[in-house]
Design a protein around this nucleic acid. Structure first.
Lengths: 112, 112
DNA sequence: AATCGTTATATTTGTTTGGATATAACGAAA
DNA sequence: TTTCGTTATATCCAAACAAATATAACGATT
């Protein structure tokens, strides 16, 4: 009693992390703000870290997850591809189901 | 296709980690070797790290997980309590079930 | 009492990680 | 052609983390 089960899931592609919780947060923030730098600010992480995460996502994905543009109106920006959106959606669904599953398993440690 | 789902689960007690994969490995090694220092060697981690892990486990558990003795025959040693053994057993069962569950969820990303 | 391998702890060193900063390249719009 | 905010990248510095080393306390056995 008083114990809790926590979990983290992530998707890998050939031993590289493709998507985890942090990366999904970043992709969602990009979707909302339209730019990587704004997404970084909204998550209170450095641009460097955000860029490294996004770079790693795009390098380990089979197809582009975002389209990044330099220059032009607003200086440029980043947006999710349809592929990127579906990845986020699937991750969220699996993650949610995993929580439900573990919520049920919790009963096993409630007697200890 | 080619993507894989990975996961980590852990048990928390009041925001402290009680049991995770590394801690369970350590407890099992203690069970097999009868000492913390031998367990550390068998896992190729430093004694310091092993001690810190075990200390954290015993501090966040509701009842003692190991009994450690200093001096005497063999210099001392460490062994699991019955409570410790049951914690390990439950963790393993939940973890195994979680793998099965995610193995099934994998189908959702195989179409992406 | 001396020995032994262990637990327990402190200190130092090294490595990795992340933050802060600076700067170039870019391209639409004014 | 100048301006603007962005992407992309390098460099430096600090902080967090891990490894290595040293040492005290312990108690059954000899």
């Amino acid at each position: 009693m008083g114990y809790r089960i926590k979990s983290r899931i992530w998707i890998e592609s050939e031993n590289n992390v493709l998507l985890g919780e942090g990366r999904v947060h970043l992709l969602k923030a990009i979707q909302e703000t339209g730019s990587l730098s704004k997404a970084a600010k909204s998550l209170n992480i450095s641009y460097k870290k955000a860029w490294q995460l996004l770079d790693s996502v795009n390098k380990s994905a089979k197809k582009p997850v975002t389209i990044n543009s330099i220059g032009g109106k607003g200086g440029g920006g980043a947006e999710l591809t349809e592929y990127g959106k579906s990845l986020v959606q699937v991750f969220d669904e699996i993650n949610k189901n995993c929580w439900k599953f573990l919520d049920n398993e919790l009963k096993k440690i409630e007697r200890i």
